[in-house]
Design a protein around this nucleic acid. Sequence first.
DNA 1: ACCTGAACACCGTTCAAGT
DNA 2: ACCTGAACACCGTTCAAGT
Lengths: 230, 230
Amino acid sequence: MPSSTDSRAAASRPQLTADRVVEAAAAVADREGLHGVSMRRVGGELGVEAMSLYHHVAGKDALLDALADWLMVRVERPSPDGPWREAIAARCRSLRAVMRDHPWGPALVESRRAPGMTLLGHLEAVLECLHRGGFPVQLAAHAFSVLDAYVYGFVSTERSLPFEPGGGVDDLAAELALPADVFPRMVELIEQAIVGRSYDYADEFEYGLELVLDGLEARLGEGPAESVAR
Amino acid sequence: MPSSTDSRAAASRPQLTADRVVEAAAAVADREGLHGVSMRRVGGELGVEAMSLYHHVAGKDALLDALADWLMVRVERPSPDGPWREAIAARCRSLRAVMRDHPWGPALVESRRAPGMTLLGHLEAVLECLHRGGFPVQLAAHAFSVLDAYVYGFVSTERSLPFEPGGGVDDLAAELALPADVFPRMVELIEQAIVGRSYDYADEFEYGLELVLDGLEARLGEGPAESVAR
DNA sequence: ACCTGAACACCGTTCAAGT
DNA sequence: ACCTGAACACCGTTCAAGT
């Protein structure tokens, strides 16, 4: 038997690494929300004391930075080939899907100060895709800004809206205690737009996405020369 | 001298009320960020122990709900008269201005589960404005969704972007350690779109806002009858 | 080298006690 | 009625000590 790797616990407990720490943090966040991600609890997830984590991550802030990176790795980058509109639409849907699967995502990304390398690489891929699609630099900046604002905003507001997607909507107005004389438009919207037709909030996402893409396509067609000159 | 209001401290320290507690919380948030809003610190802001707050707010969660309400009170509601586009644009700019003045706003709103009465009243005003502008219910729902997603998303992403608005941008690429061979599009964007012209991120907000409003106006013009029928 | 126990300065909240 | 001190169960982080 070798003498260097003979610790008793090593067999049942694989080596602690930065990656395993981040993975554990993601698991805790998925289960208990961003609020539940504490050094002690992430340590517990790995069968280790909280203080052990400090040998692999600089601190909680660094761990959250790494967790934000973990999230962006999961977002599909737009393929630089093929029509830009399809590629960009696909990456926007992917971004939204990742945030839906990990509801703590928007709040985490929002709380981070500087963008990580994975996020920067992702943005680079988006810009490259737009560039090949014929977007001059200035218009690409606009496109990037409005697209990301829309997608992040959508996933952020989606959960705080009065109607919960997929939930029962019959007693919704009653649940919110929305008197029809004070909130007539709101009650009307809930009744007509949700009750009575199979309301899927995913359709809402697509509607806005197409609206934004239409706007960008129109401005792209207005003539790239003008954008470059001014 | 009256006997009911003779406490010594009462003169120097006005009555503690729920409103004053929320106001103090806002002051702490403005000064130290959302992270700094603790019961103990809000109490300290009022010259009172943390436990005293519990006589006026149910707990920290209730205090944060009230703080989110405090924020929405400051957002200008769209006037129901006049053209819808101007009214809606003004309220979007107001929403953004409030969030700029209180950078903890997006994270706070994002963290709240259910919308407060002030937010509901605000949404009602937006829907009423759109209704008078000729929006059928379904299109109003779309408009409301895409507009709020854009505005919230914009203020949320604005602070986590690589370029800090108003800051020095000359050494930006170096600061981010962005090698031009790995991030060519990014470096190009920073150089051409920011350095060399007076880049104001406020313009970016207007650009996207007009794009979204253009899209809504076009869909409104396509014929409201169709939206109602389907 | 990697892990840990004890310790420090913080949290939100409860509760019995003060006025 | 309103305020508070002590207490409880938590935090992130440091540091000296273990192996």
